[in-house]
Design a protein around this nucleic acid. Structure first.
Lengths: 123, 123
DNA sequence: CTTTCAATTGAATACCTGTTCAATTGAATG
DNA sequence: CATTCAATTGAACAGGTATTCAATTGAAAG
């Protein structure tokens, strides 16, 4: 009857055990990590990122965004919906046009940090 | 013979035209935006993000990461390869084990910024 | 040299997600 | 009220990607 009966799967070194337990304790709950990864995913798509960077320059209506980025209005609208549902952009209607803009400057600051990281990378 | 022959697609208002041209001028070239979106994508996957957050706590061997996060060693190894190719994690071999750790503290700072953003969001 | 365990790899699979296309809604205008 | 243009929506499609599974490599120990 060995001492290891409760540790019968892989990587059973006691030293490693302690680390595993420590990590399990300190890891945030699944929900918040999911939220975080979904947040990063918003920036992880090429066209969505381009839309946000375009809106850093100026607010624009849907068709202007499409023309600036050479995308169909439909594709733009779909992505804008995702960004709006995530509170990264907001919109206002003026006559026939719906103008989109960034909700706040979090977007810019997050992109800036990443740009900075990537530029340091290539040194 | 109208003046609009060169502007015969949608959204032809001169006011909008100027904005479109401004945005086109100020938008970074495609390559750098692609790099940026790929960078964010690394954080945009649930399991990859969990791996990085686990490594914030301590360096670990592959099987310990798997055990901490309840994933197969193979799945962990595949993701670690992606993270290593992107220079977000590094590894060292010690006997039979390969220990992984974060390359630098950029990972932590980027995650922290996002966490901060999300917490402000919910106020 | 054979065995054992950790880690990696490649191929196949399954899932997710962005785009397209067609149809529809909303608002202004004649 | 019909028309026009901007925008939205839903369904279908296609491309990318994470996981699984099986096989293999690498290092230590008997």
């Amino acid at each position: 009857m060995k001492d290891e009966t409760e540790f019968d799967d892989s990587c059973t070194h006691t030293l490693h055990r302690e680390v595993v337990e420590l990590v399990k304790k300190n890891l945030p709950e699944g929900k918040s990590v999911t939220d975080l990864s979904e947040f990063f995913s918003l920036f992880g798509d090429y066209t969505r990122l381009r839309i946000m960077m375009a809106l850093e320059v100026s607010e624009m209506c849907v068709c202007c965004i499409g023309e600036s980025l050479d995308m169909s209005d439909s594709a733009v609208s779909h992505q804008l919906k995702i960004l709006k549902d995530s509170n990264l952009v907001k919109s206002r209607r003026e006559g026939k046009f719906v103008y989109y803009s960034l909700s706040d400057d979090h977007v810019k600051s997050i992109i800036d940090i990443a740009v900075e990281h990537l530029s340091e990378e290539s040194e």
